[in-house]
Write a protein that binds this DNA or RNA. Structure first.
Length: 492
RNA sequence: CGGGGUGUAGCGUAGCCCGGUAUCGCGCCUGCUUUGGGAGCAGGAGGUCGUCAGUUCGAAUCUGGCCACCCCGACCA
């Protein structure tokens, strides 16, 4: 039906791009690798923010804000972290422009205005935050320190994709400090659970919780926990990570505290984050060839009401009913938009809201007024039903819940159907090429084998699932003994 | 960064080989008729042809540089 979206089966990545652009979520900007997030996309991101922010606060965290710039000397303090990000940093070297004497009307960088020390545009904030924490933490009484920041970060990626990998992106980063290793690990696991809860119950996206192999760990972490989701094309997406940082940053920034015994010790740290990449996850979990599909819990507008009328009097009569319906729905905390614009016709509006993924559409015409009915269409299944007016608010309220759970069930069924246990390398390669998805296979536990599999097949170990059942087997690549299966996939 | 492709009105395009000031559709504006799945008719507006330079009497068209985007690599916690 859609005239604008490239079908998934024809070209998945073109389809993805079409959804982002045509559903009015974001657009390429004049800046390389950076996008403009448009109101419809930003509204969804705001819903994600609101939901996550509440979850963070409910688990005892508070928000703060740290600078965009990090002096190079601070940035390089934690060596592994610095090394991990060094290749993708934007660097400020000057602070002033001046008129170009050779070229009237143009500006050049003023060579006189060179900074004594370069500033790194944050690719992540551990360095500046831990440098700050040094001044905030002296005693166990100052702990735990549970802080989150909503911010933008810059990573100079070579190749970018709207929402999935942009040079600048929006995210939240939690940075916590603890007295003990156990407490810090518990914190990082707790936040992983928050992310998984959000992914499954709001994004309606099933995820596998697990931890990363040393190769795939965050630079500077002792352990990286992750939630991994399977997209419609069989590729995996890392949807959120939570890191146990050990004492690495405390040591690099000399953050010590006096414990209850009066002895000095380095604090234990975590950091955790999710980004606007979740928008990509949302798209690639539920959307179809007709456009975006938004899970009701994240839809800025859950219900749109389209009047169908032949005269101004007709519109007035319809509006009277719609206003009472709208109030009843709002009383149930349902967000409703009454699109009574006269500048677009109903058919146009239907197509538009379908493309933009509004979960429920209500149509009311003069015929309905006479019959005491309304027409209700659900975006996920693209079905329509005519119901009695008096059933409307309960019907819609239940329908929203049904759509939310239906989307999750559908995504879960897809993920399950595309998760394969594989016992030989031949079979492994065959699955990757023919029915891509998650692959559970035995691995000998060495970085060498992991690297070789990656180089030969582009598949990586997404994670070692938490609560993974132990099972003796042999590595599909090396034939060496293995004690468990790990989760492989090609990934975004 | 390497290989391939693209860039013409808000969007999608024709023209480019063979140089002479730009085609069509959608959208936009006005009016009337319409309104239950992207309305119809009539009239109208809108373009430094990505950008900079070169060749030429003359460049969308030929040559070179640069920029942006797309695809494939490389890269990516």
């Amino acid at each position: 039906m859609s005239k604008v979206i490239t079908p998934q089966e024809k070209d998945y990545s073109k389809w993805y791009n079409d959804i982002v652009v045509e559903a009015d979520m974001a657009d390429h900007s004049a800046v390389r690798g950076c996008m403009v997030i448009k109101p419809h996309g930003y509204a969804i991101w705001e819903k994600m923010q609101q939901t996550l922010d509440k979850m963070f606060k409910d688990t005892g965290h508070v928000n703060a804000y740290f600078p965009l710039f990090i002096p190079k000397s601070l940035f390089e303090a934690e060596e592994k972290n610095a090394e991990g990000f060094a290749k993708e940093c934007a660097i400020v070297t000057h602070y002033r422009l001046k008129a170009d004497p050779q070229n009237p009307g143009k500006l050049i960088v003023d060579p006189e205005a060179k900074l004594e020390e370069e500033l790194i545009v944050r690719p992540t904030s551990e360095a500046i935050i831990w440098n700050t924490y040094k001044g905030w933490i002296q005693s166990y009484r100052d702990l735990p320190l549970l802080i989150n920041q909503w911010a933008n970060v810059v990573r100079w990626e070579m190749r970018t994709r709207l929402f999935l990998r942009t040079a600048e992106f929006l995210w939240q980063e939690g940075h916590t400090a603890h007295e003990t290793k156990e407490e810090a690990i518990e914190e990082s696991r707790k936040m992983l659970d928050v992310y998984a809860n959000f992914a499954e119950n709001w994004l309606a996206m099933p995820v596998i919780k697990g931890y990363k192999t040393p190769n795939e760990r965050f630079a500077g972490a002792d352990d990286t926990y992750t939630i991994e989701a399977l997209m419609q094309d069989g590729k995996a997406l890392q949807a959120g990570t939570s890191h146990f940082l050990g004492q690495n940053f405390a040591k690099a920034f000399d953050v010590k505290f006096a414990n209850k015994e009066g002895k000095l010790d380095y604090v234990w740290a975590t950091s955790w984050g999710v980004s606007t990449r979740l928008m990509g996850a949302l798209i690639m979990s539920h959307s179809d060839n007709n456009g975006l599909v938004i899970p009701p819990k994240l839809a800025p507008t859950q219900v749109v009401i389209v009047p169908i009328y032949k005269s101004a009097e007709g519109l007035t009569l319809i509006s009277d009913y719609v206003h009472t319906l709208k109030e009843k729905l709002q009383a149930k905390n349902i967000s409703v938009k009454f699109d009574n614009r006269d500048s677009q016709r109903p058919g146009w509006k239907f197509a538009e809201y379908e493309l933009k993924g509004i979960p429920v559409r209500v149509a009311i015409g003069e015929r309905d007024l006479a019959n005491g009915t309304i027409e209700i269409a659900r975006r996920d299944l693209l079905t329509k039903e005519v119901i009695k007016m008096e059933d409307a608010e309960n019907y819609i309220s239940n329908l929203l819940e049904d759509i939310q759970s239906n989307l999750y069930k559908k995504a879960l069924a897809r993920t399950t159907a595309n998760t394969f246990k594989v016992d030989s390398y031949e079979e492994f390669k065959k699955v990757l090429d023919e029915t891509p998805g998650f692959i559970l296979a035995h691995w000998d536990g060495t970085p060498e084998t992991e690297e070789k599999i990656k180089n030969e097949t582009k598949a990586t170990i997404r994670c070692i699932p938490l609560n993974n059942p132990l099972e003796n087997g042999i590595c599909i690549y090396s034939g060496k003994p293995s004690i468990q299966r790990v989760l492989f996939a090609r990934a975004y």
